[in-house]
Design a binder for these strands. Structure first.
Lengths: 150, 150
DNA sequence: CGGGTGGGTTTCATTACGAAACCTTGATTG
DNA sequence: CAATCAAGGTTTCGTAATGAAACCCACCCG
């Protein structure tokens, strides 16, 4: 989003969007969640302009969604990790995923599936495992490629 | 978002964001869901620029999320309603709401509560009624003002 | 020494946004 | 009957964000 504020909204939806509603923010979070932790990985994966990526990363760090951790010194290099606050955005991603699967038609079925690590069952938009019925947390699920075209 | 496209992403999250990820879109949907159906109502409620609102409404109509229905002729006036596709975005709103309630601190508790119309129980981020355990649909829930400061 | 890698920063053109003014059709008011 | 108001936009224009490409820096490698 632009200017990232929605003045006078007194609404948690608007408040959330102020933080993660800007263009790219949620996709960066998705990428980090899927294990892309470095600047160039994310940049290449998204095709986002580098200056914009810098800005987004800094803002996500400021707002406590991402964390920067050095993985080498001289030259100092960092990786980005999700904090608890960031991981808690998983439900938002899952909601978008389910909606996109339903309405953003793809000939070949959903591009990615979310499965329960323990039992392999598919996870639905409520983050409930369709096989074992467990209510899942981010850490108990993973994203795998969807069915490939026949 | 800007330019509203995320080329080459093959991901339902990105696909969804292309449609509803632009600034204001989700808040317009929230407003319509809460019964604001007319241009000026939405414009006043959000404080969005009128030309931008026009653009967003048209795009939401094009993408099948909103529907325009005349409520009078000469001069013709329209109201905006959510289609099924639009109503199905409720989980996304609920996910943002829950996250915002948790992290976008408010002194006085959550600004709005979502309750199950039938039993009055609170609804959680999984859209499950905390009182009766039912898995809810948009139409079975409503948004009410949160607890007022003591 | 020349080139490559990772992670940015700078520059500049393009595009979107925000605010305010204006327009149109009809109803209301004085 | 002119003036005003309401609803729902459209136009204009200045500002801010984006995107692409170039550049920079520290180090590593051969």
């Amino acid at each position: 989003m632009l200017y990232h504020d929605y003045p006078g909204q007194e609404c948690s939806i608007a408040a959330s969007l102020e933080v993660v509603g800007e263009r790219w923010s949620l996709l960066i979070i998705r990428d980090v969640l899927r294990g892309k932790r470095r600047f160039d990985q994310i940049q290449t994966s998204l095709g986002i302009a580098r200056n914009v990526l810098t800005k987004r990363l800094n803002r996500l760090i400021e707002t406590g969604i991402l964390e920067r951790r050095p993985y080498q010194t001289s030259p100092e290099r960092f990786e980005y990790f999700l904090t608890e606050k960031g991981l808690d955005l998983w439900p938002v991603l899952m909601a978008y995923l389910e909606w996109g699967d339903k309405y953003c038609e793809s000939e070949t079925g959903p591009p990615r599936l979310i499965v329960h690590k323990d039992c392999g069952g598919e996870v639905d938009g409520r983050r409930i495992c369709q096989k074992c019925g467990a209510h899942l947390d981010v850490r108990e699920a993973e994203s795998i490629p969807g069915p490939t075209p026949a």
